[in-house]
């Protein structure tokens, strides 16, 4: 199980990385490598050039803007998991990161790598879709921004430009009062999930829900958001949550494989989405405002 031979470059700047990308149509970006390297080893991925972006300093930064927390493409999952800024402003991502792989893969794996890889069961992609993250690619000298809800189009497939380098992922900051929930189910605790769900409810200062976001992952070709806006008109009681999720999830296409039937995935995703919403709701109802 050895990869095909390839060339290897280690650019120091994003511009250099983009030039290398433009120079070779079969180039691939190497970030943490935790998804790419197994595919290389099995020869499922056969690049002629690997561009290692680990030495581009800008890509390892976490920056707060007025509205977003921007996570550089090379920020390691373990670093993000422990980052105060992320815990405070993207608590949903913090929760999700506990479910990503194992400590040894989180030590190497990156936020950007996970987004770009677009595994249908990836937790980070689910959070990005749920929250409507902004995904920024650099192509040549230009930045291209993608809405996460429109970014993923299939298993390991995205609308990313082929000659682009993922630069950062901007997650919207939560409102002052916010509750989150993240759940997933897998045959073994750290396996690829069979179903997962993420929820975030932003409340206004009076305690009324302003926005409600729920996403489900691992059940179809890519993570998707459920339309639960109907809940804004309710007091978020269990019955409304269950009914709304049940209706919303009928629209989602689910896949079937050895480990779980399509029905299972849909049923469990709905179950988890309800739990995630309930947890998000209860966090606020129980916790004082920040």
């Amino acid at each position: 199980m050895k990869p095909v031979n390839f060339d290897y470059e280690r650019p120091r700047t994003i511009d250099e990385a983009c030039e290398l990308l433009a120079s070779n149509s079969n180039a691939r970006i190497l970030a943490g490598g935790q998804s790419l390297i197994p595919m290389l080893s099995m020869r499922l991925s056969r690049p002629s050039l690997l561009i290692d972006i680990a030495h581009i300093k800008d890509l390892s930064e976490i920056v707060a803007t007025d509205t977003h927390i921007e996570i550089g493409a090379m920020v390691r999952q373990a670093v993000a998991k422990n980052a105060k800024m992320i815990q405070e402003y993207i608590p949903l991502l913090s929760k999700a990161l506990h479910h990503v792989g194992h400590p040894p893969t989180r030590a190497r794996g990156t936020i950007g790598g996970s987004i770009a890889h677009a595994d249908p069961s990836a937790e980070i992609a689910l959070v990005a879709v749920t929250l409507g993250a902004e995904i920024t690619y650099r192509v040549g000298d230009d930045d291209h921004m993608f809405d996460a809800t429109e970014f993923f189009i299939g298993p390991m497939l995205t609308v990313a430009p082929p000659d682009g380098c993922l630069v950062k992922v901007g997650f919207p900051k939560t409102s002052k009062i916010c509750g989150t929930g993240f759940y997933e189910v897998a045959p073994r605790r750290s396996d690829y999930a069979l179903a997962s769900a993420a929820a975030q409810i932003n409340f206004d200062s009076k305690g009324a829900a302003k926005t409600i976001r729920v996403g489900v992952g691992s059940i179809g070709d890519f993570p998707e958001r459920l339309d639960v806006d109907h809940l804004l008109n309710t007091d978020l009681n269990d019955e409304s949550i269950i009914a709304t999720v049940k209706t919303a999830i009928t629209e989602i296409e689910t896949v079937d494989d050895l480990h779980a039937s399509a029905e299972y995935r849909k049923r469990v995703a709905a179950h988890l989405a309800v739990k995630a919403l309930q947890t998000a709701r209860d966090e606020v109802r129980e916790a004082p405002a920040k």
Partner: peptide, 28 residues
Amino acid sequence: LLEEFAYDPNGQLMTQSFLDYLMPSSHE
């Protein structure tokens, strides 16, 4: 609960890596 060398109808082994052939970890 977890482990099976399962074949698809075309005679291909579906669980040929540790991603699909699931062995109990310390959690299980």
